[in-house]
């Protein structure tokens, strides 16, 4: 099976993020890490590929930097990577991103595309669905379990109260939640070998896309209102009663 996993390099969340004051774009340092949510997609891809000696191809868009994030996914065991780095794509909206990824995925060929549900820096949460539409295949979203049997994919789709069982024929796009599988740690041998794994780099025009305008712009950015401090209940021996009262007020119990 030919599996494509979408991955994104993001600034290390350990460091405070900053936005360009004029464009409101996220400032991206040279060293970016693999988005934590993508580790789950890579693991799903690797596990499915292991069943029938399939291949896992990473597709990623954004400034290359030192490629640490993509290398991390290669070190986990992916076979190769396709990377789209184009200054004209700076600040792309979700739909432009989906168009670029779809073009790259179409070019390389696929039976299954795996993506995280949303990136940890952008949080739009719509790229997997847009990707499926552009590729003309079904979108199976918010998977907390993924099984492939022959040419049929079945997922458990996370809902607020439980899960739906959703099935479709391949090819398809699936978005996976954190917790779908336990991502493996890259092995040191994998890390050393990742240096020599093939990485193809394209611009938007290489993929036949000339209009990279995102059709949207960020007009202003406002800090989220700070959450108000909670109520502190000092325990004088009766503290538990106040907590139960509070929970009843909130209709939690």
């Amino acid at each position: 099976m030919n599996i494509v996993v979408c991955v994104k390099q993001i600034p290390d969340p350990a460091n405070p993020y900053s936005l360009d004051p004029e464009t409101h774009y996220l400032n991206r340092p040279h060293e970016q890490v693999l988005d934590d949510t993508d580790r789950y997609g890579v693991e799903v891809g690797l596990q499915l590929a292991a069943v029938d000696e399939g291949t896992v191809t990473l597709v990623s868009m954004g400034p290359a930097g030192n490629m640490q994030g993509v290398r991390q996914a290669l070190a986990m065991g992916a076979d190769k990577a396709i990377h789209i780095d184009d200054a004209g794509l700076k600040g792309s909206g979700a739909l432009t991103t989906a168009r670029i990824l779809a073009a790259a995925i179409q070019q390389t060929g696929f039976d299954l595309v795996v993506a995280g549900t949303e990136s940890t820096d952008g949080y739009t949460g719509v790229v997997p669905q847009q990707l499926a539409e552009l590729l003309g295949v079904p979108a199976l979203t918010f998977a907390k379990k993924v099984d492939v049997d022959g040419s049929t994919i079945t997922i458990n789709q996370q809902t607020a109260t439980g899960y739906n069982v959703v099935t479709s024929e391949l090819p398809a796009v699936v978005s996976v939640t954190a917790g779908v599988v336990e991502p493996r740690y890259p092995t040191f041998k994998g890390i050393m070998a990742a240096k020599s794994k093939p990485v193809e780099t394209y611009s938007a025009s290489d993929l036949g896309i000339t209009d990279t305008s995102s059709g949207q712009s960020t007009v202003s950015v406002t800090d989220a209102t700070e959450r108000e401090a909670g109520e502190k209940i000092e325990d004088d021996g009766e503290g538990h009663l106040r907590i139960v009262e509070k929970l009843q007020e909130l209709k939690v119990v």
Binding site: V33, N66, Q68, R71, Q72, I191, A194
Partner: peptide
């Protein structure tokens, strides 16, 4: 190096 950074982060995560 990138490899050394990935090794550091892998052990740190573990």
């Amino acid at each position: 190096s990138t490899e050394e950074t990935l090794i550091r982060d892998t052990v740190r995560d573990f």
